[in-house]
Amino acid sequence: MTVADDRPVDKGGEIRVIPLRHYGRWLSVAVVLVLLASLVKSLITNPRYHWGIVWDFFTHKSILEGLARTLTLTVIAMTIAIFLGTILAVMRSSQNRFLSICAQGYIWFFRGTPLLVQLIFWFNLSALYPDLSFGIPFGPEFFTFNANRVITVYVAALLGLGLCESAYMCEIVRGGLNAVDPGQTQAAQALGMRKGLIFRRIVFPQAMRVIIPPTGNEVIGMLKTTALVSVIALPDLLYSAQLIYSQNFRTIPLLLVACIWYLIVTTILTIIQHFVERRFGRGTEIMSRKELRRKDSQAGNGPKAALLRGADDVGR
């Protein structure tokens, strides 16, 4: 090539590239650093945080009991919500209009009323139905419970949180199911697979990839929403902290105790989500480059593999 002569070439024969300088970014970094430093300084030097009290109460018996209750509520409520939400999503996508409308009605009601009201409602269910019975309408009843005995605070909390959350989970699951290419179902059908099997082995694992990130959001949201159960006097993490500071008036330190615990649990949940995403990201871009390359070397080298490596080299 003739043009090569007048290119800016240094002695080594390589072209020197001077990247664009981002002065605005450097200024922003400086501003943020100053703000961060002053925040850290005040956290350490302001005696009114009472860090000593925070650590004293950090592993206090009733705080730990509250934490355990918050965790159990989150896990059970989310389990109910994911299970019920999946059923609702399947109903909602059913070709049977009646089932679809029922699911829509459920979502409409539970998304449309405040969770706080739902919790209080479940707690006071016995005022509406003193006896709960199981049977055929206008027909025989098989067994009967005393509502006050069955709907304890705990059950009311689980019902309120789980049923409301399942309406949201339904939409998340439905979005995931819709995101799977209908060709996948057809290919599975053509292989003679039946509906249940197709759902379990083909559609659901692929939908999971889309379902997991918003579900992770919902789990973390639920962790903190459980604090609402204090209205029906169930001592969760936050309410336990409140009960203590209502006696010793150390409001801020005890709120800090609760917050630190919430942050720790959220961190753990985020890490778990990362691994679950990896598990369901098999065969997709979520799978790390390293794994793909390992698979490549096992499988011989395809043109796609070469492309991926090329992209990786550019990134370096």
Binding site: G183, A187, A190, L191, R194, Q206, R209, F280, G283
Partner: peptide, 20 residues
């Protein structure tokens, strides 16, 4: 499903299961 199992089908867009 039993009868479909006896008929193989190949699609324009392959429709391979990407997670396997």
């Amino acid at each position: 499903a039993q009868r479909r199992a006896q008929i193989g089908m190949v699609f324009q867009h392959f429709n391979l299961f990407p997670h396997m």
